[in-house]
Amino acid sequence: IRCIGVSNRDFVEGMSGGTWVDVVLEHGGCVTVMAQDKPTVDIELVTTTVSNMAEVRSYCYEASISDMASDSRCPTQGEAYLDKQSDTQYVCKRTLVDRGWGNGCGLFGKGSLVTCAKFTCSKKMTGKSIQPENLEYRIMLSVHGSQHSGMIVNDTGYETDENRAKVEVTPNSPRAEATLGGFGSLGLDCEPRTGLDFSDLYYLTMNNKHWLVHKEWFHDIPLPWHAGADTGTPHWNNKEALVEFKDAHAKRQTVVVLGSQEGAVHTALAGALEAEMDGAKGKLFSGHLKCRLKMDKLRLKGVSYSLCTAAFTFTKVPAETLHGTVTVEVQYAGTDGPCKIPVQMAVDMQTLTPVGRLITANPVITESTENSKMMLELDPPFGDSYIVIGVGDKKITHHWHRSGSTIGKAFEATVRGAKRMAVLGDTAWDFGSVGGVFNSLGKGIHQIFGAAFKSLFGGMSWFSQILIGTLLVWLGLNTKNGSISLTCLALGGVMIFLSTAVSA
């Protein structure tokens, strides 16, 4: 259960009878995928790494000078000259100064003066180019299975845990398959586009800190620079940016070097996208990844198990997540596992009318040892309800109150669905055939309105939902006002479609 501690969480529900669903994975976010007769899966884009970055340009932001020398000439005696002028490691300046009897010249006039100092770069920052084909995306998957609280967001041991898996995709191999043991396998067909235009970005490294910066900004930095990788004795261009020549006297000129420019660069980098280094690879934390999940090989585990009949206890007080759902960790005293956990939410304890829904599909106890633990997640209705676990006299209950409203949740879900469709863009549509167009249209309606429909009408039977949709269509056909007619027709059509397409 990876997503319960992530604030940016998206719930995606598969269409009834569908074998695939489109998701948008982004750094700092987590996606929970639910479908009829399929286990619930949490998917998170953990890291995006980039390798084989080529150094484009380096800037010196802290330097020192040494070996200063000057040469001067009297008027009419030609130009002052130093051998160091031809050495690229030196920074030199030529000027004219007033000369006369007082400073060793027989004539009054302008004399030539040249001053040089050896330039040494102490600290530099480097910009590297990123090729999209060198990106690698690491995705962690977790099935809502027989897990306890100690396994949440624990990325170790996934090789031997059938509840978890790690997959890596690249532009050259965008397809992967996550093996989930008894739950089958989940196929991923990803489109490795981060949403960032790397043709316009460089990877900047300064003092063990890293950013993504725009090329134009990078090339306009007014500091000494050299092109390409460091060859040991780089040729620094624009050395004068960190060196200041003071007022010249008759035979000498003082040279000083400016202080470190790291603070000024940090100020200019305010708002830039931060990154990290992992050995020789860069780690990015921006952008998104679009994936199509193929769920035809994914299956529920323990459908044929019998119900657990022994007593359950709450190991922890049920807690609310950031998303309005409830996490419950229970301990089973029996030894008759594997068995299914009898769990439901009810409005009252007399009729036990089921409300809400299970995020953890078909929760089971897989071990036959005593005191096995299991964590599950529920989506309670707004208002008061009861969490009921167990059967008969051994069942345990917990009162729950959820604040908020169904309308607010439906609106929030619609906005999130619209954002998801905007990110998917043209990849969500198939114009290759008439059937493809209608299929894409259905998927689009489901992406945007599916979660809201589930919130508003999830407790009704599909037949009642179709009746309401048919009534809206009838009202649309018999209303003389054009805008009201079109609105009723659209709402009725969407409702009829979703009542037959969205899983219960």
Rank of each mutant, 00 (worst) to 15 (best):
I1G: 01
C3A: 02
C3T: 02
I4E: 10
I4R: 01
I4L: 07
V6N: 02
V6I: 15
S7W: 00
D10A: 02
V12C: 07
G17C: 06
G17P: 00
V21K: 02
H27A: 14
G28C: 02
G29I: 00
G29M: 05
C30K: 08
C30M: 11
T32A: 09
M34I: 08
P39D: 08
P39S: 13
T40F: 08
T40K: 11
V41K: 04
I43L: 15
L45I: 13
L45M: 13
S51A: 11
Y59S: 02
Y61Q: 06
E62D: 15
A63E: 05
S66V: 14
M68T: 15
D71G: 09
S72F: 06
S72R: 01
R73I: 07
R73D: 09
P75C: 08
P75D: 10
Q77G: 11
E79V: 08
Y81S: 10
K84N: 13
S86D: 06
T88C: 04
T88F: 05
V91Q: 01
K93E: 13
D98V: 06
G100T: 03
W101T: 02
W101E: 07
G102N: 05
G102S: 08
G104N: 05
C105H: 05
K110G: 04
G111A: 02
S112I: 01
T115Q: 09
A117W: 05
A117S: 00
F119G: 05
T120Y: 06
C121T: 03
K124E: 12
M125P: 01
Q131N: 03
L135I: 01
I139Q: 04
S146L: 00
Q147N: 00
G150I: 04
M151C: 13
V153M: 08
Y158Q: 01
E162H: 12
R164K: 15
A165S: 15
E168P: 00
N172S: 09
S173T: 07
A176S: 01
G182L: 14
S185I: 14
C190A: 04
E191M: 11
D197S: 04
F198M: 09
D200K: 03
Y202W: 09
Y203V: 06
T205S: 15
N208P: 03
K209N: 08
K209L: 00
W211K: 08
W211H: 08
L212K: 07
V213W: 08
P222A: 13
P222L: 12
W225C: 06
W225M: 07
W225T: 03
G228L: 13
G228V: 00
A229R: 09
D230Y: 04
T231E: 11
T233K: 14
V243N: 04
E244Q: 14
F245M: 11
D247T: 09
D247K: 02
H249Y: 12
A250H: 06
Q253S: 14
Q253E: 11
T254N: 09
V255D: 01
L258A: 13
E262T: 06
G263M: 13
A264K: 11
V265T: 14
H266P: 10
T267C: 06
T267E: 05
A268Y: 10
L269Q: 10
A270C: 12
A270N: 13
A270K: 13
A272T: 13
L273S: 04
E274F: 10
E274K: 06
G279S: 15
A280R: 14
K281C: 00
L284V: 15
F285N: 06
S286G: 14
H288A: 10
H288Q: 09
C291N: 07
K297E: 11
G302N: 04
V303C: 00
S304Q: 03
T309R: 15
T313C: 14
T313F: 00
T315D: 08
V317I: 14
T321E: 07
H323N: 05
H323G: 13
H323W: 13
G324M: 13
G324D: 11
T327R: 01
V330K: 09
T335F: 13
D336A: 13
D336H: 12
P338D: 08
C339W: 10
I341Y: 06
V343K: 04
R357P: 02
L358T: 10
L358C: 12
P363G: 01
I365H: 08
I365M: 14
I365N: 11
E367D: 15
T369C: 05
T369Q: 02
N371F: 13
S372W: 05
L378K: 05
L378C: 04
P380R: 00
P380M: 13
P380K: 13
G383M: 09
G383W: 01
S385K: 10
V388C: 15
V391I: 10
G392N: 11
K394R: 15
H398I: 00
H398Q: 15
H399G: 14
H401L: 06
H401V: 03
R402P: 09
G404A: 10
K409A: 15
T414L: 02
R416L: 03
G417D: 09
G417I: 11
K419G: 00
R420N: 10
R420W: 09
R420M: 11
M421W: 08
M421L: 14
A422V: 15
A422D: 05
A428L: 00
W429G: 06
G432T: 15
F438R: 00
L441H: 07
G444M: 13
I445D: 11
H446E: 04
I448F: 03
F449G: 10
F449C: 13
F449P: 04
F449N: 10
A451M: 13
A452Y: 12
F453R: 05
L456S: 04
F457E: 11
G459W: 08
W462V: 09
F463I: 13
F463A: 05
S464G: 08
Q465D: 10
I468G: 14
G469A: 14
G469L: 00
L472V: 14
L475D: 10
N481M: 13
G482K: 12
G482E: 03
L486G: 11
G493N: 02
T500Q: 11
T500A: 12
A504R: 02
A504Q: 11
